[in-house]
Design a protein around this nucleic acid. Structure first.
Length: 447
DNA sequence: ATAGGGTTAG
């Protein structure tokens, strides 16, 4: 690639390159900025190459604009070249240039290493620098680092007030860290201490936290805040509410919120179905799915919603229905079944005593060596352990997952059921030898 | 003048 910004060119246009003239529409400096603003990276570079860059004043502003344009135009290679020039001119300590570089590395990289280097090298870090780095860590799945940095920022006396976004990224970091309690705590201090008004994103995150914690009381409080904030029409917020009530075992409330939603999407439906699933009302799941209500509203079920309905089928023992949905998944909706769908089907078939059919299904799946499939099938076998099939399945499970103690227990149980006491003892010894958990006493019958 | 953000499902 041609090197940009050669310093050996075009002294003739020097007159148009000072700070004052970039506001002059005739000047090339003005054109560069205009091109940057409209995201026309190549045009901007073209003009840039026709001037003497070394004589241009106010370089930080140009570098920042150009770097942002690279980010906007998704051109990482150009961005890196500009970074090289930035370093050469010693402007990488400038916070505007640096912040633009951070955006480049986080949005197009993501290159955490380079971003951190830029961040550490900044002469003065402002709230935007901190926020970029904090949210950047969340993005690359390093919530702990993100929180460390957040605390460091607070230690320096920089308050995240006025910027809801920095607060939401912290909440997000907490929730990704499974520290839902802290996320909730932060939400409340954000509202009370800093007087910030949360937006839809914040509410979505916080409601999910309430749901995962089963905190109905706080969930309701947040619901009240949602209503007060006028965000009731937000499909993300309302789907989170449906989810929250479902997880807090108030499935009626979940249905109520759902019914009043003016805009529903697939996630809203799946959250509703999930609520019924978690509350053991599998009949409702199947009823809602079967009545084609979703399809009437123009919503096509996806990978996850099929997990819900197959899970329900397996719990109710609807073999034909389950088979129908499993087939429809790939035939009608062109969704490749995954391990979760297979698990449901194996459980469904196995519990119905259709061991061979279940075994067949596993053997023909591309995830056939996945231990969980065999473990699930083995669990289903416990109801009918009197067969060579059960023995075969149990052996396969032990082979694929030698550290799973239940497989041994099941296998021993199969032997006991047909009176092969010596084999049962061998399994017990094998378990001890491999050190995989404790064999239950002889009173153990089935799960 | 220029820069920063995220949510939902089994």
């Amino acid at each position: 690639m041609k090197l940009l910004l050669s310093s050996q060119r075009h002294y003739s246009t020097l007159a148009s390159l000072n700070l004052k003239t970039f506001e002059n529409p005739q000047s090339k400096a003005y054109k560069i900025i205009q091109y940057c603003k409209s995201g026309s990276l190549f045009e901007a570079i073209h003009v840039l190459n026709s001037i003497d860059w070394t004589r241009l004043s106010n370089k930080p502003f140009f570098y920042a604009s150009l770097l942002q344009t690279c980010t906007k135009a998704v051109s990482f290679t150009h961005g890196i070249q500009f970074h090289a020039h930035v370093i050469k001119s010693g402007l990488d300590t400038d916070r505007f240039v640096g912040n633009s570089l951070l955006a480049l590395y986080f949005k197009l990289g993501p290159n955490l290493f380079e971003a951190r280097r830029v961040f550490d090298g900044l002469f003065y870090k402002d709230l935007i620098s901190w926020t970029s780095m904090i949210t950047g860590y969340v993005k690359v799945e390093k919530p702990k680092k993100s929180l460390e940095l957040f605390l460091e920022m607070l230690g320096l006396g920089i308050e995240p007030n006025g910027f809801t976004l920095s607060a939401t990224s912290i909440i997000s970091a907490f929730t990704r860290n499974d520290a839902y309690d802290k996320a909730l705590g932060f939400f409340y201090s954000m509202c009370r201490k800093h007087g910030l008004s949360p937006d839809g994103f914040t509410f979505g995150t916080v409601l999910t936290a309430c749901g995962n914690l089963g905190r109905l009381k706080q969930g309701k409080e947040v619901h009240a805040k949602v209503i007060a904030s006028g965000l009731s029409g937000n499909v993300f917020v309302e789907s989170s509410l449906v989810d929250m009530y479902g997880k807090c075992r108030l499935v009626n409330q979940s249905q109520c919120v759902f019914d009043r939603m003016s805009v529903k999407n697939l996630v809203s439906w799946t959250a509703l179905l999930g609520g019924y699933c978690q509350n053991g009302d599998f009949e409702s799941v199947i009823r809602i799915f079967r009545e084609d209500e979703m399809i009437e509203e123009g919503i096509r079920p996806d990978y996850i919603s099929f997990v819900g309905v197959l899970f329900a089928c397996s719990h109710v023992g609807l073999v034909d229905q389950g088979k129908k949905y499993f087939a429809a998944m790939s035939e009608v909706y062109e969704i490749k079944p995954g391990i979760e769908h297979y698990n449901c089907m194996i459980d469904l078939l196995g519990r119905a005593g259709l061991l061979e059919e279940a075994e067949n299904l596993i053997e023909n799946a591309n995830c056939r060596d996945e231990p969980s499939l065999w473990t699930v099938l083995l669990g289903a076998c416990a109801a009918s352990p009197h067969s060579a099939t059960a023995e075969r399945i149990a052996k396969k499970a032990v082979e694929l997952k030698p550290d799973h103690h239940l497989s041994y227990v099941y296998l021993a149980n199969v032997y006991r059921a047909v009176g092969r006491w010596d084999d049962a003892v061998k399994i017990r010894n094998l378990m001890t030898k491999r050190g995989v958990g404790k064999m239950p006493g002889t009173s153990w019958i089935e799960t």
